[in-house]
Structure formats: structure tokens, C-alpha cells
Amino acid sequence: MPFANIKVPEAALSRAQKEEIVHKVTNLFVDYFSEAVRPHTMVLIEEVKDGGYARADEVFVIPDAYRSKD
């Protein structure tokens, strides 16, 4: 069973955008492994709270301009 775990900042994506990601990632796995994997493909989109991720000692908070308008 192919499994993709995608982490994004909380509220960065709308429901429609998440559905599009799931569809595209599933299709990517199908391209590599064949149509047989479609019903067994798991795509998990995890939303990370502001301040819950960092790089090089810089803690990130998503700017309002990048938040989903959902």
C-alpha cells in the first residue's frame, strides 16, 4: 500500500486544495505502480500549528496572506 504523508502549515490549504493534492498524489503512485494501487493508496495531509515547525533556529508562523480563504 503506497502511503504519502504531507505536512503543511495549519489553515494554509482549503478543502478543495487538499482534495486536489490527494488526487494528484494518488495519480502519481498509479503512474509508478499501476492502477491496481489506487484503492490501496493512503494520502495523509497533516496540518502543523503555527510555531510547530522551524528551520535553522527560526520558528515559523504562516503570514495571513498565505492562509486559506475557505
Rank of each mutant, 00 (worst) to 15 (best):
I6W: 06
K7A: 04
A36L: 05
E35R: 15
K49S: 10
D57G: 11
S34P: 08
A65G: 01
Q17I: 00
I45P: 05
E35L: 13
M1K: 12
H40A: 13
P39W: 04
V37D: 06
R38N: 02
K69M: 02
V25Q: 11
I45G: 06
R38P: 00
Y53Q: 02
S14H: 08
V43H: 10
M1H: 09
R38S: 01
R55M: 07
R38T: 00
V48H: 04
K24N: 09
S68W: 02
K7W: 05
N5K: 07
S14T: 15
V25Y: 13
N27T: 06
L44H: 13
P39D: 11
M42E: 14
H40K: 09
I62K: 07
R38K: 10
S34I: 02
A56F: 08
L44R: 09
A36H: 07
K24R: 14
D70K: 01
F3H: 13
F33M: 06
I45F: 08
T26P: 04
T26G: 09
D64V: 01
E19V: 00
H23M: 13
A65F: 06
K49A: 13
P2Q: 11
E20I: 03
Y53E: 01
Y53W: 13
V25C: 14
I6Q: 06
P39R: 04
E46F: 00
R15I: 07
V30F: 02
A11D: 15
E35A: 15
V37P: 06
S68D: 04
K18F: 00
I45S: 01
E20H: 14
V37K: 02
T41H: 12
R67W: 06
K18T: 00
Y32I: 01
V22K: 04
E58C: 00
Y66L: 14
D57E: 11
V59W: 08
D70G: 11
R15A: 07
H23Q: 15
F3I: 07
V37I: 03
K18E: 02
A16L: 15
R67N: 10
T41I: 11
E20C: 06
V8P: 10
T26W: 03
A65C: 01
Y66M: 13
N27K: 12
D70E: 08
I6P: 09
I21C: 14
S34C: 07
A54K: 04
L13S: 12
P2E: 11
V30A: 14
T26E: 09
E58Y: 02
K69A: 06
Q17W: 00
K69C: 01
G52N: 03
D70C: 02
Y53P: 05
F3P: 03
V59N: 12
A11H: 15
E10Y: 03
